Amino acid sequence: MRYGAALDLRFPESIGEFVEFLADLGLRHVEIRQGYLDVHPEAPTPRELREIAESTDVTYTFHAPFRDANLGNLNESLREATVRGVTRTLDAALAAGAGAVVVHGGSVPRRYPDRVRAHARQQAVRSLRACARHADDIGTHLCVENQRWKRARVRHTETPERLAAFLDEIDVDSEYLGVTVDVGHAKVTGVDPAAFVERFGDRIRVCHLHDNDGTADQHDVLPAYESVAERVGAEYNVLEMKSLDDVRRCVTG
């Protein structure tokens, strides 16, 4: 099991500085957000990331675009653009030697009529099917994340049952289509992460670790992250914090 943290677009540190910070805490994994690569003035290339990994023994996962990106977009040209964004992240992850790419499953406003919500779900299914086939073609794991329940939007992956039905509908028989369990999203949705473990078992490749008070997705410090991660059993375990100080507080107490 690898432990590390997510390199968010809010962080000004370079990848080298972030890796050094984690190493000082005994952590050896980085989840690289596509948003970070999109905006950081010194964003590394996949080749540079691979060189850093080889020289520091750090491992990577990537997180596909999710800010302003919706694989269930009702507009076909925007849906296709989002698919291209995910497949490019898969290609970058392969070149960097990353172990997986995390992806969100799409959403649609609850206020829309049933027929529109059904169409949005089919858009998301089509999108993930295309992304999963690309992942299979290049041999890179694509892991669909459980998203939290929101009053205003329908997500297709909020509970083990919804996520399982969604993956069944995508219907791509591949060892490279897996699951990311986000324990904070599960908590705010009112689901025990153990329910995801029971349902998906070895398909869970990535675990996102953070806490909240059950009312919102606050990404609070989770000092018991190791015991939580051990119950999930993912290979890659990622602290999703708002600051480096919060990452340090998780590790040092």
Rank of each mutant, 00 (worst) to 15 (best):
D245E: 15
L25H: 07
D213G: 03
D182H: 07
C143I: 07
G4H: 10
V86C: 11
T45E: 01
S77K: 14
L94N: 00
T215P: 00
R249L: 11
L239W: 07
R133T: 08
A224L: 02
G184P: 08
A164I: 05
D57K: 14
D202P: 05
E20Y: 04
W149Y: 14
V154H: 07
D182W: 01
V30F: 09
Y176R: 10
E13S: 12
V197T: 09
D202G: 06
E145R: 04
V103K: 15
E226W: 04
I32Y: 01
P109Q: 10
C143S: 10
G184F: 09
L37N: 00
V197R: 12
V188N: 03
A64W: 07
G99N: 09
A23M: 12
R50W: 04
A195M: 13
D68C: 04
L239N: 02
A53M: 13
G253L: 08
T87G: 02
R151W: 13
S243W: 08
G184E: 06
L49H: 04
H185Y: 03
A194E: 12
L167Y: 05
D220N: 12
R205Q: 13
H29F: 04
S55Q: 09
R126N: 10
L94P: 00
I15M: 14
Y36S: 02
P193K: 06
A100V: 11
K187A: 14
D38S: 15
Y112V: 08
Y176Q: 03
